[in-house]
Structure formats: structure tokens, C-alpha cells
Nucleic acid binder design. Structure first.
Length: 874
DNA sequence: CAATACGCCCTTTTT
DNA sequence: GGGCGTATTG
């Protein structure tokens, strides 16, 4: 192997040190954008250069995407190597565990061919468990139960231990249900995501020989995103690295945002204590964001007390100040932002933006709705990351359930799912009867099926069909073991006439077609798998799909589209990514510090980190927006600007006021809630009898959970762009009509969209005319954050008197130059030449032109402008 | 047994 | 506002 010196000259001091410290424990505190992945890949390359064999290196990440990226960058750095050359093992925690378990899980009494249950299947099990414990969902919802179980599992508690620890009615019930759940999943020969880690850990602690064998496979261990490790992961790492101690962990405590799911920041905070001789390297040079953006991040994160101290230094100085914008409500927010993006995409200038430059980041999954709608209307391609995944669709789950049953006959969840899907005359009553027998005799449903005819509750006809069904499965089970996977699957789908089922379910021909296409994609994905895998098996395919999660199926296709699309995603899924232009929307109390996190003290710091993550995604442009009011529970409610907006600007006092205002608000909500609970409790008594009677209800057909997609052809699934067919110019209203029955609002927005879309607007000024909300931040003043309404919420109406005028002037939307002189107070020496210039030129002039007579000259108007953005457009 | 209607409940983040 | 589950009806 030609040994070539890896060139380290492009690395800064810290990076070089991290790359060259090759033995012993090493902690790399890598701030956002500090070249973390680079360090890891260089380090791998260095290791190999100094004689470590590739396959003696294990790098662990949390996501497949990260693993893939690392793999790609490492091989690039290593240059051309013989095809057969070993590669470093780079995988996620979960897939690493799967591999280990596949080899040894039989020691723990599980079949080596165990199935992996994802959220949907867990949901089914949770419901069944709750039925078993005779708890109505109103007492404890499946989701809550799963959360509890996951919490216990992450803490390493068995059901028995959980029962001891459980405190209060709810938890005790949950602990009981946990026992049922665990028994059920085990009986299915399946494991869930948490089990993957737990069982691996158990394997290591109970079977030393397994631990030796697995740990002995590697001499060097790298863990990425170490701040996200939970307890089992931590112990697995320890077990693997304990002997050689060549453990390099990389992470950033300031980006720890998965505490809610068991990640424990203390792992990274006290690494030095666990490994006293550890070298610690800090990477604080940020190459991603402009200085103006980093300042906000640095200032914000200072509000967290417990952290490794570090300050991001901007490599890229200057930059446009971030913008802070207030809107009337979430609709206005979406409309204005989309309009702005649309204008930028359509502009003829050299610096024309690409859709892929943009990311819209939000906290909760309901927020993107408004944006999707507007983006569709504007004909801008977008990708909603993390929405309904391909694998969450009913059709896909059905088909996969067939495959799962073929692979693992004891998989009861899948069995129940397909037993009567497509409808084959095995009715709910028959199934219930069988399930009762199964429970009574302690046998599995699968075992009972062949003798179904013996039982009373099962009519002759049903028994016959069950027999037919079993025969069919047996048939395909044999075929798939020997023949081509894809072909067999195709035959299977035809054999059960799934198409007919779809036609029965959906009467709209468009719907039917998209569902059929989806099925086609499943088939082709198995074909792809089959093609590129040496020894393809059903199990292998299923494993891939289970672990792939939200990654797309036809990845090339997906990537290609993503390249031309605006990205919509949660702050959580944005971690690790970067975009030239970032919008952080819904920056409001209750949303960004999320309502549920405000209660417990650990909550706020994590929310703050989440905000920090969001800010540090932006390379050049950052816009933070919030609404004055927002729909919640079908009602419009006043919003309070997020305390983080103030914190990041160094306005601690106002941040405190925002927090206090929210606390007060939360208090009223809580009493409302309590009242409702009470009413509910009364009712429950009545309902209970009924529920009990009905408790043996039929198995789940579908575990819904995620929201449905608006319309098939515009379905926004990852990797599947909604409007790709429509050009921006088109103003075909029909699809829209279908999309949105709420015609009223449709028309309104449509009108505006049309304006925005007119291809060659007079004077070519579309952009500015269309971007009313855009405003240079040099203008950002109190005005942007306090309207009279907000000010009173914050209890500061008087004190901000000087700004009140500007407040109404701006009302969060208008872009005027009035503020220029006031630049001083807030961010004194900060304005950039470019910003200044842009403000007047770009904003004002065009706005007048294009905007219909309604808009007045910017400078003098006050209150009436608060709505200007919308009304102008209409 | 399926389709429809009504009413209740909710709203965090996900490998 | 909307999705889901349950009840009711044919």
C-alpha cells in the first residue's frame, strides 16, 4: 500500500492536536462549525497511515447520514485504494448493536433472526399491553406508555425494577404495562430500539467471552456526538474501549439536545473524571457562520450555567446582522417568508439564491404546515425532513408486514396487521376469539391459527380462509428463501390482490395511483437491495429498512431533488447541517422554550441549546421570526416573544420579563386544564364500564400517529417533492382547490401568490416588492420585539416609551429606514456598509412601485402598518 | 361487516 | 382545527 503523508497543513492548531493524539483517551470539544467531521476523518487517516489496520478502527455515529458522510469523506481522504482493501468500520450505535446481537443474542434466549420493531409496531404493542392491563387509553396513552418504557429502559430498569420505582397511579400502571409489553415483544421474537442497546449491554456484562470477542475486534474507537450518549451507550463504549483505552470522543455539550430521550450530558462533561488521563482538545474556530451570527450564539449560550466553557471565534468576519421580525400570526409568517424566498429565487441578479440555500427551522411538527401550504402555492420545491417517512405509510407497512411474517412467523404484530389485509373474510370477531384463547392458554396467535377451526368463535368459513392464508404464507416463505426477493414479493402482492384492496380503500383514481406507485417503490427498493448485497435475505432487507428510519429509499433520486429544494425541518434534525440562509420561525414562548420544558429546570437549558443549534446552522443570513398570535387548539392566542430572542441580544432583563409573562400565562392555562381534567374525571367513571366491556376490541389495523398527507400528488414525503411538476409561473388553481377546501383563505393567498409569481413584473422589481418583511437588522430595535400588546404582556409599556412609536411604525413588518439613526443603542459599532446600503435602496424604492396605492410612504405611518405586508399583497 | 357520523383529545423533540 | 377512536347505522 502506497503510503502517502496525509497533509495536515490545512488544519488549525487544535485540529492538528486532535488528529495527532492517537493513543489514550481523548476528548475533543468541537464547537459548532469547527470542523469536527474533518478532524475525525483525518484522525482515521492518520491512524491508518501510522500502521493501524482499517478494520481495527471503529467509528460510531448516531445517524446513518453521519455514518455515510464520514465513510465518504474518509475514503476520499485516503485516496485510491485497492477495491478489496478493508475499510474502517463506521456505523451507528444501533447498527453496531444489531451486528453484535445477530451473532450472540441466542445467549439471551432470543432468536438470532429477531425482528426489530419500530415506533409503529411499538405502538401496537403498547396498545395491546394497555388492554391487557385493562387500562383505557384515557388513563394512559400509548405514547405516554412508550415514553415511560423508553425512559426505564434507558435507565436500565427491568419491569420488576420499574414497578418498585414507579411513583403514583400512572407510573404504576405504566410499569405493569411495561411488563406486558416486554413479554409480548419477546414472544414476538422481536426487540425495539432501546433493546438493541440494552441487550448488547447485558450480553457484555453476562457473557465475558462475548465482550472479549467483540471488544477485541478493534484497537481504536471514535465516538461522534458524544454529548448524545445515553447510559447504555456509555456502558457499551466503556466495555469496548476498556482494554485498549484508545477512545476518542467528539462532541459539544452546547449541542446536547436529546436529554429527553435519555442522553446524558454528564458523559461529556465528566469525561475527564471517567478517564483521568484524557487529553482534552477544544475546537473553537468556527468556519461556518459569519461573525454577526456567532455573536448571537455565543451570547445566548452564556446563559447556560453548566457547560464546558468555550467561545466560538468567527473565521468569517462581519456579515449581515440577523433580522428579528414579528408577524401577525403564523399564516402571515409563512406567507411573508415564502414570498421573500420566492422573490429571491426569481431575481435576475448574479447573487440569485438557490432554493437549496434555504432552511426553515421550527420546533414542533405542526409548524411546517403553514409553510408547506405557502410553498406549494408559490410553486417552490421543498423537502420536509422527518415528516411522514416512507416507511410510515400504510401500504409500505402492510407489505413489510408480509415480509416480516415470512421471515419471522412469531411476529404477532405483523400477523395481526395482515391477517385480514387485504380483506379476506377473517373478521374481527374471529380474531378476537382466537386472541382470547391465546391469552387463556398462554399460546401465541400463530400457534393457534392452524387449528382455528376447533374454536367456537371462529365460523367455518373463517377457518377455511385462515387455512388458505397459512398455505399462502408457507408457499411464499419457501419461494422467498430460494428465489429472487423482488420477484417473489411482486408475486406475493399480486397473489393477495393488494391492488384490489387499494381500490377498495381509495375511490379517487389519483389516490389509487400514488399508492400503487408507492408499492412499486417498495418492490424496487428490495430489488436494489438485492442487487447490491452479496447475500441478500429478507431479514437483511428488513433490518436495513428498520434502521434506515427516515432516510429515503431511492436515495439518488432524493438527493437530487433535495438539491433544488427549500429544506423544512425541526431544530433537532438540523443538527450537523448548515445553510447559507436560515429562518428560525415561531420564536415564541411556549414554542421555543417549549411549554412542556418550562416546567422542569433541566428543560430550559436544553431548549436554549436547541436555539443555539438553530442559530449556528446559518452561514450568511439568519432571520428569526415570531408571531403576535398563533392558532392553538383551534383558537388564536396571543404569543410572547421567546426569551431567547432577548438573551441572544444581551437583553437579560427583558428576557426575564418574557419568561415571567409566560409563566403567568401558563398558570392560567394550567387552571383551565385542571378544570378540564376534573370534568374528564367525572366522565371517566361513566365511561369506564363501557370501556371494560369493549376491551377485547379488535387488533389495530393501523397505528396512525403521524399526520396524513394533504393530497397524494402533492404528498410531501422526504425525497419526494411535492410540486415538482408545477412551474412557478403556473397559476393553475385546480390542484389548489383540491388541496384546500377552505376556499376563502385560499383565494386570499392565491391572489397574493399570483402577484408574486408574475414572471416579468413591470420594472423587474418583483423581489423587493415581494419582500415586505425583509428588513436590514440595523433597524432591529426594541420596536421589533414589543408592540403595545407585547409590551404590556411584558409589563414594560412605560419603560420602552421611546420605542413605542417605532413599534407601531414597524409592527414587525415594515421596512423603512427610519431606524437608521438609532443603530447606536443596541449594537453600537456594528453596522456594515452593505447593510446600510441595502436598506434604503432595495427596500423602499421598489416597495412603492409595486405595491398598490395602499401602501404609504414608509416613514410616517404608524399603527396602520402592522398589517402592511399582507394587505399590500392582497 | 363496512361505511358513515359524531365527539373527544390533543399539541415536543426521534436514533 | 384536525385526527383519531368509538358508536351507530345500513
Amino acid at each position: 500500500m502506497a503510503r502517502r503523508r496525509i497533509d495536515l497543513s490545512g488544519l488549525n492548531r487544535g485540529q492538528r492536536r486532535a488528529v495527532e493524539t492517537l493513543t489514550g483517551p481523548l476528548l475533543v470539544l468541537a464547537g459548532a462549525g469547527s470542523g469536527k467531521t474533518r478532524v475525525i476523518t483525518y484522525r482515521i487517516a492518520r491512524l491508518m497511515e501510522t500502521g493501524t489496520k482499517a478494520d481495527r478502527i471503529l467509528a460510531v455515529t448516531f445517524t446513518n447520514k453521519a455514518a455515510r458522510e464520514m465513510q465518504g469523506r474518509a475514503s476520499k481522504l485516503l485516496g485510491k485504494r485497492p477495491k478489496a482493501a478493508k475499510r474502517p468500520e463506521i456505523s451507528t450505535f444501533h447498527s453496531l448493536c444489531v451486528r453484535i446481537l445477530r451473532r450472540h443474542i441466542h445467549h439471551l434466549g432470543y432468536p438470532n433472526k429477531f425482528a426489530i420493531y419500530d415506533g409503529n409496531e411499538q405502538d401496537s404493542l403498547a396498545r395491546a399491553a394497555l388492554r391487557d392491563v385493562r387500562v383505557g387509553y384515557e388513563k394512559l396513552r400509548p405514547g405516554e406508555l412508550l415514553n415511560a418504557i423508553s425512559g426505564w429502559k434507558s435507565a436500565g430498569l427491568t419491569p420488576a425494577q420499574a414497578e418498585e420505582v414507579a411513583d403514583g397511579d400512572k407510573e404504576e400502571l405504566a410499569a405493569l404495562a411495561y411488563a406486558k409489553y416486554q413479554a409480548a415483544i419477546r414472544a414476538c421474537g422481536a426487540v425495539d430500539f432501546d433493546d438493541l442497546l440494552l441487550l448488547t449491554e447485558q450480553l457484555f456484562s453476562e457473557h465475558a467471552e462475548v465482550r472479549f470477542m467483540e471488544a477485541g475486534r478493534f484497537d481504536h474507537l471514535l465516538i461522534d456526538e458524544y454529548q448524545d450518549t445515553n447510559a447504555p451507550q456509555y456502558r457499551i463504549v466503556k466495555a469496548l474501549a476498556g482494554a485498549h483505552r484508545n477512545l476518542c470522543v467528539v462532541g459539544d455539550d452546547d449541542q446536547s439536545i436529546y436529554g429527553w430521550r435519555g442522553a446524558d450530558v454528564t458523559h461529556i462533561l465528566s469525561f475527564k473524571e471517567h478517564w483521568p488521563d484524557a487529553t482534552v482538545v477544544r475546537l473553537e474556530d468556527n468556519y461556518r457562520s459569519r461573525e454577526s451570527i456567532l455573536e448571537l450564539a455565543n451570547t445566548l449560550i452564556l446563559h447556560n450555567a453548566t457547560r464546558h466553557q468555550k467561545v466560538l471565534r468567527a473565521f468569517r468576519k462581519g456579515g449581515e446582522p440577523a433580522r428579528f421580525i414579528r408577524y401577525e400570526d403564523e399564516t402571515a409568517e409563512a406567507l411573508a417568508i415564502v414570498t421573500e424566498i420566492h422573490a429571491a429565487l426569481g431575481s435576475e441578479s448574479d447573487d440569485r439564491a438557490l432554493a437549496s440555500d434555504y432552511a426553515i427551522l421550527f420546533r414542533t411538527n405542526e409548524q411546517p404546515r403553514a409553510f408547506e401550504l405557502e410553498l406549494r402555492r408559490a410553486g417552490i420545491p421543498y423537502v420536509l425532513v422527518g415528516g411522514m417517512s416512507f416507511y410510515d405509510r400504510k401500504e409500505v407497512r402492510d407489505i413489510l408486514a408480509y415480509l416480516k411474517i415470512l421471515a419471522n412467523p412469531s411476529d404477532e404484530v405483523s400477523l395481526l396487521r395482515i391477517l385480514n389485509t387485504p380483506a379476506r373474510g377473517i373478521g374481527a370477531s374471529s380474531i378476537t376469539a382466537l386472541l382470547e384463547v391465546a391469552v387463556a392458554e398462554g399460546r401465541s396467535l400463530g400457534q393457534l391459527l392452524p387449528e382455528a377451526h376447533q374454536y367456537d368463535g371462529v365460523p367455518e368459513a373463517a377457518a377455511r380462509r385462515i387455512r388458505g392464508f397459512l398455505g399462502l404464507l408457507e408457499d411464499y416463505r419457501q419461494r422467498i428463501a430460494t428465489g429472487s426477493l423482488a420477484d417473489t414479493l411482486k408475486d406475493l402482492i399480486a397473489g393477495v390482490d393488494y391492488k384490489k384492496e387499494i381500490e377498495r380503500l381509495y375511490k379517487n383514481p389519483g389516490d389509487v395511483q400514488t399508492r400503487l406507485n408507492i408499492i412499486g417503490e417498495v418492490v424496487s427498493s428490495i430489488a436494489i437491495y438485492e442487487e447490491r448485497t452479496p447475500n441478500p435475505t429478507v431479514e437483511g432487507f428488513l433490518e436495513e429498512t428498520a434502521l434506515a428510519g427516515r432516510d429515503d429509499i431511492g436515495s439518488d433520486d432524493g438527493d437530487d431533488r433535495k438539491q433544488r429544494a427549500v429544506t423544512l425541518m425541526t431544530l433537532h434534525s438540523a443538527k450537523g447541517l448548515e445553510f447559507p440562509r436560515v429562518y428560525m420561525v415561531g420564536m415564541e414562548e411556549g414554542l421555543l422554550p417549549h411549554g412542556r420544558s418550562v416546567a422542569d429546570s433541566a428543560g430550559i437549558p436544553e431548549e436554549r441549546r436547541l436555539c443555539y443549534v438553530g442559530i449556528t446552522r446559518a452561514q450568511d443570513h439568519l432571520t428569526l421570526s415570531f408571531a403576535k398570535a398563533r392558532m392553538k387548539w383551534g383558537k388564536s392566542r396571543a404569543s410572547i416573544p421567546s426569551r431567547f430572542l432577548f438573551e441572544m441580544r444581551g437583553e437579560a432583563e427583558r428576557a426575564g420579563k418574557a419568561a415571567a409573562a409566560y409563566a403567568e400565562y401558563a398558570e392560567t392555562v394550567r387552571s383551565e386544564f385542571a378544570a378540564r381534567e376534573e370534568a374528564k374525571a367525572k366522565k371517566k367513571k361513566r365511561t369506564r364500564r363501557i370501556t371494560k366491556k369493549a376491551r377485547s376490541s379488535r387488533p389495530e389495523t393501523e397505528a396512525p400517529k403521524r399526520r396524513k398527507v394533504a393530497s397524494p400528488e402533492t404528498a410531501a414525503t422526504p425525497g419526494r417533492l411535492p410540486v415538482q411538476a408545477r412551474q412557478p409561473q403556473q397559476t393553475d388553481t385546480k390542484p389548489l382547490q383540491e388541496l384546500d377546501p377552505a376556499t376563502g383563505s385560499r383565494q386570499r393567498a392565491l391572489g397574493s401568490t399570483r402577484t408574486a409569481q408574475s414572471p416579468t413584473p413591470p420594472e423587474g422589481q418583483v423581489p423587493s416588492a415581494q419582500s415586505p418583511p425583509a428588513r436590514p437588522t440595523s433597524n432591529v430595535k426594541d420596536a421589533d420585539l414589543d408592540t403595545p400588546a407585547q409590551a404590556s404582556l411584558l409589563g414594560i409599556s412605560q419603560s420602552v416609551a421611546p420605542t413605542v412609536e417605532r413599534i407601531s411604525l414597524d409592527a414587525g413588518l415594515s421596512s423603512n429606514t427610519a431606524a437608521t439613526p438609532t443603530d447606536g443603542p443596541d449594537r453600537p459599532a456594528k453596522k456594515k456598509a452593505p447593510a446600510k446600503k441595502k436598506a434604503p435602496a432595495k427596500k423602499k424604492a421598489p416597495a412603492k412601485k409595486k405595491a398598490p396605492a395602499k401602501k404609504k410612504a414608509p416613514a410616517k405611518k404608524k399603527a396602520q402598518k402592522s398589517r402592511s405586508a399582507r394587505s399590500n399583497l392582497r
